[in-house]
């Protein structure tokens, strides 16, 4: 009995400790990020890594999500003669919810894991320690560019996936389901408000920050050789995916 309590307590302690470390890392990055010199080149590089290279997979996901969304809502709305509202539903779901969340999940799987693996390898091969000897702050040099890149690129990618998803739905509705294209487009844009798009972008920026922060944290605290790197990679994907879904709910409930 005591043992169970002990394990439970330990788990909670570990969780608290990790949370604390993540927050501290974030604080450190903020502190160092605001000081000169700014490594603009490194930021651009990370934007390429995290953002641009993830674009094909994000776009494909968004297209098919929009298409299937149109198909499904059509099936449902047909039952009460509201087919004309499919466009509205697709646009609202894409901008408010699926655009940011799916982009976040894919980037977490693709770029978040890459960050953890890269930093983890640097940690186990003692390259991070080497940075100290070069009088370079590893947080400033490695973590800050990634956080900035993630926070900036996720909204951009979300905008792309929004538009691609909306037009994927439009394609299915008009070409496959024989909807009236003018009415579909009117319903799409008439009911959409700018706050829908903007709330999705705020979420996306937050997800970008979470993904790169967790990736960096997992990489930075890797221990135990190649096996440790693998564990760090997996951990970063799992934790950031969960964080995305949890914070998605909280952000939606509190902010919008």
């Amino acid at each position: 009995m005591l043992r169970i309590l002990e394990i439970l307590g330990q788990l909670i302690m570990v969780f608290m400790e990790e949370t604390g470390k993540v927050i501290l890392l974030f604080g450190n990055s903020l502190r160092w990020g605001l000081r000169r010199p700014f490594y603009v080149r490194l930021v651009v590089r990370q934007m390429l890594e995290i953002g641009v290279n993830s674009i094909p997979v994000v776009l494909i996901t968004a297209t098919f999500t929009g298409m299937v969304l149109a198909l499904q809502t059509h099936t449902g709305f047909q039952r009460f003669n509201a087919e004309s509202l499919v466009g509205t539903v697709v646009a609202l779901s894409m901008t408010r919810e699926l655009g940011p969340v799916l982009t976040g999940l894919i980037v977490a799987g693709r770029a978040g894991s890459a960050i953890a693996a890269e930093l983890g390898t640097m940690r186990v091969t003692e390259q991070i320690d080497a940075l100290y000897t070069l009088a370079t702050n590893p947080v400033k040099y490695l973590v800050v560019p990634r956080l900035v890149a993630g926070t900036l690129m996720l909204p951009v990618m979300t905008v792309l996936s929004d538009i691609v998803g909306i037009y994927g739905g439009f394609f299915v509705s008009v070409k496959v389901l024989d909807a009236n294209r003018t009415i579909y487009l009117r319903r799409t844009w008439d009911f959409l408000q700018f706050s829908d798009i903007y709330s999705g972008l705020v979420k996306a920026a937050f997800f970008g920050l979470v993904i790169s922060l967790i990736g960096c944290y997992k990489g930075f605290h890797t221990r135990g050789g190649a096996e440790g790197v693998g564990r760090a990679t997996t951990g970063s994907v799992v934790v950031s995916s969960m964080m995305i879904l949890i914070s998605d709910y909280l952000l939606t409930a509190i902010l919008f």
Binding site: M47, G51, V52, I55, L152, M153, P155, V156, M157, V159, L160, D162, I163, I197, L201
Partner: peptide, 9 residues
Amino acid sequence: IVFLGIMIL
């Protein structure tokens, strides 16, 4: 990409 995103927005 960023320019494209801003244009779409």
